[in-house]
Design a protein around this nucleic acid. Sequence first.
DNA 1: GCATTTGTATCAAGTAGGGTTACAGAAGGG
DNA 2: CCCTTCTGTAACCCTACTTGATACAAATGC
Lengths: 141, 141
Amino acid sequence: MAANSQFSMAVHVLAMLARSKDENLKSDYLASSVNTNAVVVRRLLGQLNQAKLVVSQTGANGGSRLARCPNEINLAEIYKAINCGEVFALHAKAPSQDCPIGKNIEAVLGCIQREIDKGISEKLSRYTLQNVFEMVEQGKV
Amino acid sequence: MAANSQFSMAVHVLAMLARSKDENLKSDYLASSVNTNAVVVRRLLGQLNQAKLVVSQTGANGGSRLARCPNEINLAEIYKAINCGEVFALHAKAPSQDCPIGKNIEAVLGCIQREIDKGISEKLSRYTLQNVFEMVEQGKV
DNA sequence: GCATTTGTATCAAGTAGGGTTACAGAAGGG
DNA sequence: CCCTTCTGTAACCCTACTTGATACAAATGC
């Protein structure tokens, strides 16, 4: 099923950034908390940067920090930034167009897929990074 | 992101079975509509069989048919049968327990994950196989 | 100028999935 | 009882994706 672990890594990293407000955090430091490689974190930060969720600085005293307040960032934005894609994919090869089912199944499934994805976004958007950060801090689940 | 195409294949196959009510369909025939290999279909049917969604017969005149009426099967059951897993996964390596964020992030994310997955199931359960079959037949999306 | 840190390119390794071939075993029909 | 037809499954190859690692140019602060 190969689900996406990048989203959880992203939330983890962003929660760290939320914690140390305006201080630049280095990819090395973030990597050691996430328990992965600094390059992996930088790749992730690159995506979050493109989505304007974080700001990064090169050079000495460089690092990354949030581009916005934690309560102005919700999980749906993060999900989208990471480009988690769809819940389920259509089959790589198009089905037989000679079959009455094959001919239309893709359109129907695509429609359902969009509805599900919208539902996911809606649910995720109820959580701000601030919410998540507080839940983590309080150990409250 | 490697999303799951098995779910769409499963719905496709089940829609075919719904169409030819009590007739046994052969994996070869199903495969040609889905545009894949017969073994891939049989693997899929094996999972659907375990979930008691289809019944298969070996031997001459064998094949598969639905175990229940199409309006008694909903997409959430199919999704579960295919074991699509979770929307997003936790990172393979546990985060650093020394970090205040790392220590609790998994619990929080796991909680959110379960909520999202429940939402997906809820939305999928609104569609029966009969609904999907009719949408496909009518070319109506 | 020098130390530090990001951004990226590149490569190796592991994993999952799809596709294919092969074959045992079940079932129907002479 | 034999032959044909199917499923169920194992084994294997190939492709794609992800993670992890090394390396280095470019940016930045002192």
